[in-house]
Write a protein that binds this DNA or RNA. Structure first.
Lengths: 335, 335
DNA sequence: CAGGCATGCGTTACCGGTAACGTAGCGATC
DNA sequence: GATCGCTACGTTACCGGTAACGCATGCCTG
């Protein structure tokens, strides 16, 4: 009751009549102790309310860190949020702790975060995206720990990659639109100044339109963060400039819904006058009068897989370099 | 170029012709060195690409940790996400690192997270909410570090509190509805099994209706996570049971928007047939045809304030025990 | 000019675990 | 019965920083 958190290995050892090292072995389940000793030690651990000091464990030359760094673009996205939740839950369940950061789609911020993380001697790193600065690559090389690049599949990963191809996502949606008879197609994006994965989707989308014989008519990429209002405003800008467009592909579902809201104010009909597609499979689409045509991303599955693969690497298990998490284009009623 | 990350204080010391301790003093800007020495040391630090080992720094008896634990209910909420982003950005700017966790509105999960955090010897803790297990309280007492409770204002905080009163938020909205002539009022909530702050708002709301002479007619609190679809379904359930309700207060804006979507499918008009109010000031409300009546929460300001107050406590500055972040009821066109 | 004190360092010990190594006791083997 | 090898521990050193302390040197003051 006095000061439970102050008890260290030494205290347990004294109380159990063994050495520090034996207590350490019991707690880590390392070989070298009898069943009898184990029982005595665990009893004292419970009685004294021993709390391990991971700092000390991760510090020594053996460096048995249980710390994993995770860096996402931002905290305010539903998709990144649920991926993060899955990663965090899985790593916690497997006995690891996460140190989470965000980089706002700026590679330099990612490097700054990684530099800060490195000073905590992490056991592994999970990064969203595959575009990194040379400084980041050098730091990762020096760290010599497993690195999992997620979300945007990297076929030549630094270490291992888990995700899917944004290019293919865009390409698939482009083909889908053409197959539905759309001919005058536009694109509405966000975060124009950043190297987003939405840009990669737009490239795939554009290529599909080109290959299908109906090249993209126009695009509007805002500087804002993606979101409902950005979609609303983007649709307004693009359709005012090009009223004859018969389909729009948006950066994501929220923007698509925002775009449909603007279209509704103009008295135009979806999909009659104009077809709409989003991306992500976000919850907001659930309450739309029409089911939104979109690409569903299994965020939880992706996060769980990423965490498990990282732990596999940490344990030395053989893991695949590249793990594809399949996405699904779900045709709705909007194209 | 060889192995920059391997350089330690010892290496810098040797290269600069001084002792480890002097290098340490220079880097921490602790008194006890000349300007000349400083220049030499910093030159070697830059040349050798020295990376500090925070593990070692936080480890010793001096325990100068720069680690701050932050625990939020979940990662997939826009409001918690933007608060988290503000906390993280502010702490990073001030030279701290964050270790983030989630507890899913379960006090036991918060305790488990805190136990895990404690083993990293953090310098401070930020918790969302003010309901904690006895185990959590005991751990916090043993840790003897600053604790900032945010979001839900605690007038008798463990250490310090930054936030606003959810009860008052609800009460204010109750009065507002009555002042707008609403008389048969209902409530739609979520996460029925958890001690959410939405429940506190509902209590304040109910009290205002009682005090105003028009007690709450009915309520529907779903077990689901709050979200568009929960709002849709909750409105359906409640209004099917009680078709004569003339106003609904929702757990948050997303649920309110979901509720309006269901109402639209029934051909009812907002605010003509039924008044709607949400909570949070979420972005989804921006694209609604009608401006949603809601309470706007300054999440960024709250997060920034919380982080700054924590750092103030860490530096020993005098900080207020209780900091109120004012929220704003914004009457829209839906009540 | 002795004494006091600030400045600018170096030396030592230590934090709490863990790797590496040493060793006592005991049964099995040749 | 001497050797071997295994089990179940104890001992020691060490990780990389920092607090505490020691100690010259130079300057100021009475």
């Amino acid at each position: 009751m006095a000061k439970p958190s102050k008890a260290g290995l030494e205290d347990i050892a004294r109380a159990a009549g063994v050495s520090k090292m034996t207590v350490s072995r019991v707690l880590r389940d390392a070989p070298g102790f009898s069943e009898d000793t184990r029982t005595r030690v665990l009893a004292e651990v419970a009685r004294l309310g021993y709390l391990p000091n991971r700092l000390a464990a991760a510090f020594g030359p053996g460096k048995s860190s249980t710390l994993v760094g995770v860096c996402v673009p931002r905290f305010t996205s539903q998709l990144f949020g649920s991926t993060l939740a899955a990663i965090n839950a899985t790593l916690t369940r497997l006995g690891y702790q996460t140190m989470i950061g965000s980089h706002d789609q700026l590679p330099e911020e990612e490097e700054a975060w990684l530099r800060s993380l490195a000073s905590w001697q992490p056991a592994g790193v999970i990064l969203v995206g595959r575009r990194h600065t040379v400084g980041t690559l050098a730091l990762l090389r020096d760290l010599t720990v497993p690195v999992v690049e997620i979300w945007d599949l990297n076929t030549q990963p630094i270490d291992v990659s888990v995700g899917f191809s944004h290019y293919d996502n865009g390409y698939e949606m482009g083909r889908h639109m053409i197959s539905r008879g759309r001919r005058r197609i536009g694109y509405v994006g966000a975060l124009a100044a950043r190297q987003t994965m939405g840009r990669t989707r737009a490239e795939g989308f554009s290529a599909a339109l080109q290959d299908g014989g109906f090249p993209m008519i126009d695009r509007e990429v805002l500087h804002d963060q993606p979101g409902f209002y950005a979609g609303y405003y983007g649709a307004e800008t693009l359709l005012s400039r090009n009223p004859k467009l018969d389909a729009l592909y948006f950066h994501d579902d929220e923007m698509a819904i925002g775009g449909m809201a603007w279209i509704a104010t103009r008295g135009l009909s979806v999909p009659g006058d104009i077809g709409i597609a989003g991306w992500g499979g976000m919850e907001a689409a659930a309450i739309q009068p029409l089911r939104l045509t979109t690409t569903v991303i299994p965020t939880t599955r992706l996060g769980k897989a990423a965490a498990e693969i990282l732990v596999g690497r940490l344990r030395g298990d053989p893991v695949p370099d590249v793990t594809v998490i399949p996405t699904r284009l779900v045709p709705g009623e909007t194209v």
